[in-house]
């Protein structure tokens, strides 16, 4: 079964800009997929189509095998949680507790004890344990991003979309984010992550989707993608630093990590 499926989806903005053309994509429960591509490639448009903020001009969007056509954003959002690129587009409450429990309190679909349990769990994962009563706008941009991630975690949707969660994150926040990805995967959540950080992709993903000019031009493992120079060129992307260095000095094999680099260097005859 697929958690999310886009079938022949096209989308054109009212101003005539054709953002997506006949896109086919699916993701299974518990699968983590990175979406990469240059600004304007259609990544965010694709994300907004999956939770109903935008509606396809042609084709179908299925969540848990059900067509989302005719369903409200609120109804789709219970199954597809979307963390916006800019947290300030999303935050509208005075305290972290109120903000992240907003949907659950509004839906009345969850017992108060269960809400509190989820709040504790999510804040601990986000490195914000005990900060329930803090105003989100007293926090840094990076922390506000984690507040919006917590809002989505609390709803426990089957699909999570993260739009550039790595932007502006330091080392500790990056690790927290990686923990959250693992946590979601263990729970069987399908996670779609839009990012410009190729090293983050290498460390965390087994499947990478490359978008360019409103379509998916490649879908494969990081090794397949990051050593396909034609695809990278078409998408205006570059190899991760370690791969680029390996290619530059002519190391054999399709190296992605420092560990592989060291092994390839040993294997190539140099005695260490």
């Amino acid at each position: 079964m697929k958690a999310l499926e886009l079938k022949g989806v096209s989308f054109t903005y009212p101003n005539g800009f054709k953002a997506l053309g006949k896109l086919d994509f699916s993701i299974a429960p518990g699968e983590k997929v990175a979406v990469i591509g240059e600004n304007g490639a259609g990544k965010t448009t694709m994300a907004k189509l999956t939770n109903g903020l935008l509606r396809p001009g042609a084709g179908q969007v299925l969540v848990n095998s059900e067509d989302t056509a005719g369903k409200t954003v609120a109804a789709i959002s219970r199954h597809v949680g979307y963390v916006f690129q800019n947290p300030d587009d999303q935050i509208c409450n005075q305290t972290i507790y109120k903000e992240i429990t907003y949907t659950l309190r509004y839906n009345k679909s969850c017992a108060p004890e269960e809400i509190d349990r989820r709040v504790k769990e999510a804040l601990a994962l986000a490195g914000m344990a005990g900060m329930e009563e803090v105003n989100p706008y007293d926090l840094s941009f990076s922390h506000r991003k984690f507040v919006t991630i917590c809002s989505v975690l609390l709803q426990e949707p089957e699909v999570v979309l993260l739009d550039e969660p790595t932007a502006g994150q330091d080392l500790a926040c990056m690790r927290r984010l990686e923990n959250i990805l693992d946590h979601l995967q263990k729970k069987g959540t399908a996670v779609l992550t839009i990012t410009h950080d190729m090293e983050f992709v290498v460390r965390n993903f087994q499947r990478v989707v490359v978008m360019a000019h409103g379509g998916i031009i490649s879908d494969g493992t990081p090794r397949e993608i990051f050593w396909n120079l034609d695809v990278l060129r078409e998408a205006a992307l570059h190899q991760p630093y370690i791969s680029a260095l390996a290619r530059r000095i002519g190391l054999p094999g399709k190296v992605l990590t420092a560990e592989e680099f060291a092994a390839a260097l040993r294997g190539s005859g140099r005695t260490l």
Binding site: N39, Q85, G168, A236
Partner: peptide, 11 residues
């Protein structure tokens, strides 16, 4: 942080 929202080429 002028490049937080930018793709690799933009950066």
């Amino acid at each position: 942080e002028p490049t937080s929202q930018l793709d690799p080429k933009g950066t």
